[in-house]
């Protein structure tokens, strides 16, 4: 029972969602919200790895999301569709459905590589210097995109909807729900496996006492690098999914406000708690949508609400715990750590 409970649950959830979308029980608007939830889960759990588990302070997560979004969008548009920027499709559009996950992964790898470049100088520095380096990196990435005219510069880049249409030629199913779901599950599995291994526990050791970790044979620099790359790589995957969900990307949508949203989800959920990050991503996405009618008041109400929440629960929803620590009975069904 324990082994199969979660996979069964996930499959049921996925088929329900796909079915509801296919029979048009839920409209495109609700589908988009559900997709955003999935994407935000990847964003928050991946940032949680660096800010929660490793105890560093990365402020520029949106920069990596941008890299993933642009790289995968450019690739998929160039490979599978006819576009003004890149001309005829390089591959037959029928392959879109098979090529898309690869494109996403390449976007993630590009983001991870960017993460490597950002993390390298941060080793020589201490404390909050990672904050500054990531903020600067976020600025640099956006500024770079703005200055590349082939990909639209400040105007943004579009055409990803045509990739989805190409996929639908292969089979008439709600593809994005499938992809977001699969990649969300894979991301969470990657993070969970990483953090539950002895290797990954080195990350926790670094947060609690870096000096002791280094002296007790933990290669702290290497672990920091690997962890940061996993985190930024997954952010890149989230970016690719976001770009294809919305169908349009614009450098402005990856500014520091987006990074702030990612930070909020991590701290709302509780630092270092995977289930906390997931819950916070769902709650936060819902909150953004439910308060949409308030328009500008929303952007006063949400920060205010968050400040109040932090006054009452200064450790986030879950603290440093997982669901199974709060409801021990869940352990019967699933091994959380």
């Amino acid at each position: 029972m324990k082994r199969f409970s979660v996979p069964i649950l996930l499959v049921v959830l996925l088929t329900t969602l796909m079915g509801l979308a296919w029979f048009e029980v839920i409209d495109l608007y609700i589908q988009t919200i559900v997709l955003f939830m999935g994407i935000n889960i990847i964003t928050s759990t991946s940032l949680n790895l660096v800010n929660g588990n490793m105890g560093e302070f990365s402020c520029g997560h949106a920069g990596f999301i941008a890299v993933g979004a642009y790289v995968s969008s450019i690739l998929s548009v160039a490979l599978f569709t006819k576009s003004r920027a890149f001309g005829a499709p390089l591959l037959p559009p029928e392959l879109a459905a098979y090529g898309f996950p690869l494109v996403l992964i390449i976007g993630g790898l590009a983001a991870a590589l960017t993460g490597l470049l950002v993390a390298l100088p941060s080793f020589r520095t201490r404390d909050d210097y990672l904050a500054i380096i990531t903020i600067a990196a976020n600025y640099i990435i956006i500024s770079t995109i703005i200055n590349i005219d082939t990909i639209g510069g400040a105007r943004g880049f579009m055409g990803m909807k045509r990739v989805i249409f190409a996929m639908e030629k292969c089979a008439e199913i709600p593809w994005m729900i499938l992809w977001v779901f699969i990649f969300m599950v894979i991301s969470v599995i990657i993070i969970r496996r990483y953090m539950s291994s002895t290797y990954g526990k080195g990350v926790e050791a670094i947060r609690q006492d870096e000096v002791a970790a280094e002296i007790m044979s933990v290669n702290t620099n290497r672990i920091k690098l690997v962890t940061f790359m996993i985190s930024s790589g997954l952010a890149g995957v989230a970016g690719g999914l976001y770009a294809h969900t919305v169908g349009y990307v614009n450098p402005k949508s990856f500014d520091l406000l987006k990074s702030t949203e990612a930070l909020v989800m991590v701290y709302l959920g509780g630092m270092g708690s995977i289930s906390g990050s997931i819950i916070a991503a769902v709650v936060f996405t819902l909150m953004l949508e439910l308060l949409r009618p308030l328009q500008i008041i929303k952007w006063v109400a949400i920060p205010l609400l968050l400040i109040i929440i932090m006054q009452f629960r200064p450790e986030g929803i879950m603290g440093h715990r997982e669901l199974s620590d709060i409801f021990p009975r869940l352990k019967k069904f699933y091994k959380f750590k």
Binding site: T198, G202, M216, S217, V218, N219
Partner: peptide
């Protein structure tokens, strides 16, 4: 466990 990091 973590102290055995070098011989994983």
């Amino acid at each position: 466990l973590v102290a055995q990091h070098f011989q994983l």
